[in-house]
Design a protein around this nucleic acid. Structure first.
Lengths: 159, 159
DNA sequence: CGAAGAATGTAATGTTATAACAATACTTGA
DNA sequence: TCAAGTATTGTTATAACATTACATTCTTCG
């Protein structure tokens, strides 16, 4: 069965985000990491929608919540989340999205709908493997990968 | 035989870039496009090295050559080249690289060496196909794709 | 407690990218 | 050829994204 990513499927979003937030709490607790108020709030903000948010959008929200007003506030929190696998950076959009599979090792690709701006993270282990193979053939050793596709999500295609 | 991309192989670079420039001329001529002086010079600049150049680096070079000093000068030329398949945008680096296969339909991935900054464009039709398959499974229709890997090139790995 | 390190706040600045409009050059057709 | 329309370039200004540096506060742990 093709697993439709949550971003493209109707679902109980508050359960969805609550779930991930709980997992983030657990992961940080286990890993001796500090999911401080700014960091946790930042993750909550990203989790509100299945879209990618720019650092300044996040900052605006944080500032409204009483946190600092300067860019580093947002960038630092986002950096923490990305570094520890709780969020991803979407280069194509200069933006950030909450990770939908925190803790699970996964090779994600991002599917960006240019009509509704939703961003889905889908596991694409086989694609990643194919890329690694291609890299090996040319003697390149891969550290990190960005796989991003722009197009139309199921809902927007239907219209 | 694994085709090592030019960027990672010793080669006669002036022949390499001259060749591509000639093909660019031909393509534009055929397609009724105008490879104007700024545009052609921009392509030449990109072709000087197998690295990606930022728009402002390109601009600096263009300005030194007597073209305009303002950002749009570079961005417009680069946009033209990208639009017509003569260059690629490397999102990971906020930079641009000359296309090594102008005119040929190809699904490139970019292999970015974080040690020497060289950027190789390698054809990865199979990777692209795997991604398209993954997209189809979730009902996403792909328009454009960015495949970018950061790591170490053969030469830098050897050291 | 008190020192060391982590995290946050803030100011300033650097970097990348685009909008808007004026001026010029090229093309086309009467 | 010349005028009208289009494409291209020049320039100003500003928007959007990101980092450096340093002061301050909070946590942890001896």
């Amino acid at each position: 069965m093709p697993e439709t990513p949550l971003a493209f499927a109707p679902h109980d979003h508050s359960a969805c985000s609550g779930n991930i937030l709980a997992r983030a709490d657990a992961l940080c607790c286990d890993g001796g990491l500090r999911l401080t108020p700014v960091r946790r709030r930042t993750l909550e903000i990203l989790l509100e929608t299945h879209k990618a948010l720019g650092a300044y959008d996040v900052l605006e929200r944080l500032a409204a919540d009483g946190f600092g007003h300067q860019p580093p506030v947002a960038y630092r929190a986002l950096e923490f989340l990305v570094e520890h696998g709780l969020a991803h950076r979407v280069r194509r959009l200069n933006a950030f999205a909450a990770c939908m599979h925190p803790g699970e090792p996964h090779s994600p690709a991002f599917f960006i709908c240019e009509t509704c701006d939703s961003v889905a993270e889908a596991p694409v282990a086989d694609v990643r493997q194919a890329l690694d193979t291609a890299a090996r053939k040319i003697g390149f050793s891969v550290e990190r990968v960005n796989l991003e596709a722009v197009g139309r999500c199921p809902a927007c295609s239907a219209r």
